[in-house]
Design a protein around this nucleic acid. Structure first.
Lengths: 167, 167
DNA sequence: ATTTTTACATCAGCGGCTTATAGAAGTAAC
DNA sequence: GTTACTTCTATAAGCCGCTGATGTAAAAAT
C-alpha cells in the first residue's frame, strides 16, 4: 500500500510527512473549537475528569498529573471551586495538604459534556464511511499509545528546537 | 467484524463513542504539548503559515480566517511584529487597511518548525506499522474534511450548557 | 529547639482571548 | 463640501491560564 516507488526514497517520504504535519495544524484548530463549547479549558476539563474518575486528590498531585505548576493548579482549583464544580477539603493527619473533590454539579457537568460531545461526534461521523471510521478508531488507539512514549522523553532527542521548555 | 449482537444496539455504539471521546481528550493534551515547543500559539502558528502560503493579507481577513475577533488579530499581529516574524504594511488606495506580511525571519521559523515537527513525527512513526500509518493518514484526511462541515454549526445543538458563548 | 523540607497560597507579569469603544478613512447624499 | 453612514484598525478594560518568585504554615529531620 505504499504509494512510493523504490527510487524516490526519502524525499517522497518527507513530503508525505510534511503534508501530514500541515494537516495536523488544521486538525488541531478544529479540535480546539470542538472541545471548548462550555467554557472549560482543556486542563480544567481534564482535571474534572480525573477527579470524577479517580476521586479526591491533593493539589500537587493534580498539578503533576496535568503538567502544570502548583500555583497554576491552585488557581484552577480556585476557579473550579468558585464555579461550584469542585471543592477543597482538609486532610486529617496532615494539615498542610488540601484535597480536591468533584462536586455533584461537577459530576453532572462531566456527564453532560461527555454526552454532548458524543452527540456531536456521532453527527460528524454520520458522513464517514465504516472503513474511514475504523481507520479513525485505529489511529486514535495508536496515537493514544504514542502519547505515553512521547511523555517519556527519550533524550535521544534530535533537539531540533531551542528547548526553552521548563521540563 | 462488528462485535455486537443485534440486541445491544445503541448502547454499545454510545460506549464506543464515549471511549473515543476520552481518547480525544488525552490526544488533545498530547498535541498541545507537541505543538508548543517554540513559543508560538496555535493561532500564531496558523496565521504565520497562512501568511507564508497565501501572501500578505489584511487584518480583518486574517481574523475571520483564524476564527478570532478583529482586536484579537490586531494584538496577535502586534506580537508577531514585535518578534520580527511579520510586519504591517500600508495599502495604497485604501489607507484604512493594514496589510500583514510574513518576514524573512518568520519564513525561516515556519520552515524550521515544519522540519522539527516532521522529524518528531517521523520518530514517533517509527513504532507504527505501515497499516497503522495508512490508517492515520486516512483519518487525518477525513478529519480535515470534517473540519469544514464543523465550521457550519448545525444548530441542532443539544444546548447542554449555559450558553455564555457569543456565537 | 532549630533547621529543612513539604504543601499550598499569593503576587506580579505575560500571552491570548473577549466586548465595548474610539478614531481615521472611505462612501454616499444632499 | 458638509453631513451622515459604513468600514477598517486600534485601544481599553477585563477574564482565563499559565509562569517564576516568594510567603506561610505544618511536618520532618537534625
Amino acid at each position: 500500500m505504499r504509494t512510493r516507488t523504490p527510487v524516490d526514497g526519502p524525499d517522497a517520504a518527507e513530503a508525505d510527512l510534511l503534508r501530514t504535519v500541515t494537516s495536523f495544524d488544521r486538525l488541531l484548530r478544529l479540535l480546539r473549537r470542538l472541545t471548548t463549547p462550555d467554557g472549560l479549558s482543556l486542563t480544567a476539563a481534564s482535571t474534572l475528569y480525573r477527579l470524577e474518575e479517580f476521586g479526591p486528590q491533593r493539589i500537587s498531585d493534580l498539578a503533576v498529573a496535568e503538567g502544570v505548576t502548583q500555583p497554576g493548579m491552585t488557581q484552577l482549583v480556585t476557579r473550579l471551586e468558585r464555579d461550584g464544580l469542585a471543592e477543597r477539603r482538609g486532610d486529617q493527619g496532615d494539615r498542610r495538604v488540601v484535597t480536591v473533590a468533584i462536586t455533584e454539579a461537577g459530576r453532572e457537568l462531566v456527564l453532560r459534556r461527555r454526552r454532548a460531545r458524543a452527540t456531536k461526534l456521532s453527527h460528524l461521523l454520520d458522513g464517514v464511511s465504516a472503513e474511514e471510521r475504523a481507520a479513525i478508531e485505529l489511529s486514535l488507539r495508536v496515537l493514544d499509545r504514542l502519547a505515553d512514549s512521547a511523555s517519556a522523553p527519550t533524550s535521544t532527542s534530535t533537539s531540533t528546537e531551542v528547548g526553552s521548555r521548563p521540563e
